[in-house]
Structure formats: structure tokens, C-alpha cells
Simulated scan of single mutants.
Amino acid sequence: MDIQAHINEVWPKLHDLAEPAFKEVKTAAFLADFLRKLGYDVTENVGNTTALTAVLDSGKPGPTVAVRTDMDCLLFKNEDGSLEPIHACGHDAHMTIALGVAKLLKEQGLACGRVKILCQPAEEIGRGALAMLKAGALDDVQYALGYHVMPKDMARSGQIIAQINWTACTLMEGEIRGLAAHGSQPHLGVNAIDAGAAIVNAINALHSNPLLGGSIKTTRFMGGAGSLNAICDKVSIGFDLRSTSNAEMLELRRKVEEIVVNTAKVYGAEADCHIVGTCPAAEADPSVLALTQEVISA
């Protein structure tokens, strides 16, 4: 297999097909057609979504090994307000790799067992994997392998490693409700911006174990869209939480919610905080890691 030729043929097409979560119709059709032509047994519309699976069976006893790729893209807002789908998170590369693996395995042949290509929709909103799990796409799988393009930060050029600890991610959103007043009489109001600024500072003062890669960033702060001489009565605030530890992620969530609600109270405001989306950190199987290390060495 000519790897560069495969990339040149497949990647530009997938890059141009960019479709958002659960709308990967043309993308899924391209993948299904490619895999069928290789001789894989393809199942489309898994879980009544755009998800698909493709199986290559050696006909000999052995495990079923899954290779997983995501399919969706991100939506970007243009200056005119229109939304443009762009593969800015590397899923076009992920699909190219999965199809390359499928092609290579078909050419080389399987010694035993089966390989199952999992093409997952809606990674960006954290719901595609759940849909495939609920549909039973992994019920017959003994080993699942995944990957993500960000090699320059995790592995040196030309280096192969068995594991990268990708983080859990939680997106949280809060609303702070104060009391509007005229700028000449601030004592009659409750400035939601003051409470929001204090919340941001309190969040920035949180410190977690650096070995776990925990972090919290304030990624949204919106309020005060009215007159400049009016006390702001409402602020929308958002946070991005990360950690390689699922246990630490639960603790970070708790702290953010407590800071938002309790800091607002100190300023005489009310606030609530809720989770918009979340995805757990991968917890690797030690036996699979050991096997992967053996294969790399071989």
C-alpha cells in the first residue's frame, strides 16, 4: 500500500465534505462506499444515526478488534452570520487513517478473528459514541483502538507510543442575576458584572495536581448590552474544564458550581450553574497497552 497516495486520494475529499454532528450524510456515504469496495461488510444508520460499522472477518477463531474514527466537523460563524462547516479538529485525518488501516488489513489479510471499523458521528457534542454504544456496536468487540491527531505535542517526529492520556472535558454554563439600577444610584442595584468578575478570579485561584493536567478556563462572559449608565442585572458565563483523571473532573465540577452560586450570593445576586456537555477521559486497559508495546517493538 502506498500510504502517501492513499492520503492524497482520500483526505482532500473528506476535508471538503465537512458536515456537523449527526448530519454526516455525505461523509458516511463516502466511507461506506470505500469500505464496501474493499470487501468489508458494512452496516449503515447504526442506532438510527449516521453511524456505520464495517467488518472484515478472517473466518478463523479470534478476537474482534475495533478501530474507531469520528466523522463530524466544527461550525464556524462568518462575519455575515452564516455558519460554515470546517474540519478544524482533525476528523478528516482520523477518517483517512481508519480507511488506510482498513485497506492495509485487507491487503495483508487477517491471521485470525475480525476487525471492525467504527465510524462515529457527533464527537463534538459528546453524543455519537453513546448512540453507538446504545445500539450495541461494541457488544462483540474485545479490543478497541482509537487515536487523535496532535502528535507534535505528545510524541516526537517518527516516534510511536502506546498511549496518550487524553483529558476528560466538561463544558459548564452559568447565569448570574443581579438587580438593574441607574448608574447614579448603584446602591439600589446589584451589579451582575461585579459578581461575575469575582467568580472569574475565584476560578483562576483554583489549583489542581499538575500531574493530572487539570485546568479550568472561563471561556464566556457576556452581559451589560444596554446603556452605559445602567447597572447590569444579568451575566452569562461559561467554563471549559479538563483533566486526565475522571475522579478529579468530578471534583472540579463541584468546585465550579459552588464558586458560581456562593460568590454570587456574597454580592447579593443569584446564580445557577449547569453542565452543557461532558466527555470522560479514556482509561486504558493495561493488557492492551502491554500488547501494543510488544507490537511496536516487533
Rank of each mutant, 00 (worst) to 15 (best):
I97S: 10
P85L: 10
C73E: 09
E173W: 08
H87D: 08
M172G: 13
A66G: 06
K106F: 02
L133M: 14
L74Q: 11
L188K: 15
M154C: 12
K152G: 03
L118W: 01
M95A: 07
I86P: 00
A131R: 05
H148F: 02
C169H: 12
N78V: 02
L74V: 13
A162H: 02
A131T: 09
N165Q: 11
Q159E: 15
P63M: 10
E79C: 01
A180P: 08
Q163H: 09
H87Q: 10
D72I: 05
C119I: 01
A98R: 03
T170Q: 10
L118G: 01
K103T: 13
G189H: 06
Y147G: 12
M95H: 08
Y147W: 15
R177A: 07
I160H: 09
C73Y: 12
N165K: 10
A168W: 05
A88S: 13
C112K: 15
A129N: 07
H182P: 10
V101T: 11
A137M: 05
W166I: 07
G158W: 13
E175I: 11
P186L: 03
K152M: 13
L104G: 04
L110N: 04
K134H: 06
I176F: 12
I97W: 03
G183N: 06
T64N: 04
E123Y: 04
A88L: 10
I125W: 09
L110Q: 04
E123C: 05
S184I: 07
